[in-house]
Simulated assay, not measured.
Amino acid sequence: MAAGGAVFNDVHLNGVDPKGRVSLPAAFRQTIEIRCSNGRVASGLGKTLRMAMHPTLRCIEVSDGLQIAETEEQMTAHAQRISEQTNELVGDVLDRLEAETFPLMKDVNFDQAGRMVLPDRLRAKANIGGDAFFVGRGRRFRIWAPDELRKAEAGESTDVLDEMDDLLARRKERG
């Protein structure tokens, strides 16, 4: 792996305030710092996350700067392969692929403490209210509303659901 094994793992539950502010889990901030320090991430993108709705699940899919760079590289290579097969210009194929991928993505910056604001449109579509459940997925991570994750048929494993319920119960005990 290009990031030397630095991947998003584990699960975290953080509160979301009425304005959509939430803290990025500290472990994820550390992973981003490691992943984005390899020289492949454009200057200024170290604290930028790219968010979009998952194509089939009701959650937010999140990429860091390294994943953004890798996606761009993979897209260019894919456009070149399609161009060789179809005789289309690489630029035309790339334009089409980019038009399918990037318009609905939102860039979100986080501060030194990990505070960020979830975009209103994404938060509404993912039905995220007072809690955001972060799920590490290797190169990316997902942000779920707990109720939406419970309803998702192919969202996450039963163990992940159990972890979420444990975190919610502990939060409720603390008041």
Rank of each mutant, 00 (worst) to 15 (best):
A152Y: 08
G46N: 14
T48K: 13
A77F: 11
L149P: 03
D147N: 12
A152G: 12
P25I: 11
R58W: 03
L122W: 03
V90G: 00
S157Y: 11
V117Q: 12
A77S: 15
E70P: 00
R40H: 13
Q112H: 11
M51D: 01
E98G: 05
R40F: 09
R123F: 04
I143R: 04
D92F: 05
E156L: 09
A124K: 14
L94A: 10
I143E: 02
M75A: 12
E73H: 10
M51Y: 01
A132H: 05
I60Q: 05
E61Y: 11
V93G: 04
V22K: 00
F134V: 04
I68Q: 12
A69G: 00
R115E: 07
P103I: 04
A113T: 11
L57R: 10
E88W: 12
L104D: 09
A42I: 05
Q30S: 13
E88K: 06
E84N: 10
Q112K: 14
D111A: 07
M75Q: 14
I60D: 00
A126G: 06
A113W: 03
E72W: 02
D120N: 12
A79T: 02
R96K: 07
G20N: 03
N109Q: 14
V160Q: 13
P146G: 08
A27N: 15
H78D: 11
R29V: 01
P25E: 08
V108E: 10
L161S: 08
T158K: 12
R140Q: 13
L94T: 03
C36N: 15
M51G: 04
R137P: 03
A27Q: 15
K125A: 13
V135M: 13
L149N: 08
N87I: 06
E98R: 11
V108P: 01
G91L: 11
G130N: 14
E61M: 11
A69W: 03
K125F: 06
E148A: 09
L104F: 12
N127S: 12
V93A: 07
T31N: 10
D147V: 05
W144E: 06
L57I: 02
R81D: 15
S83W: 00
I60T: 07
R142Q: 15
G65D: 05
R35W: 07
C59F: 06
S63I: 04
P103L: 05
R58K: 14
R142N: 14
R150K: 14
P146M: 09
F133V: 01
F102S: 06
N38E: 09
R58N: 09
A154D: 15
N38P: 01
F28T: 08
T71R: 12
H54T: 05
E148G: 06
G129V: 01
A99H: 03
G39L: 09
R142A: 15
G114W: 07
V62G: 06
P103N: 10
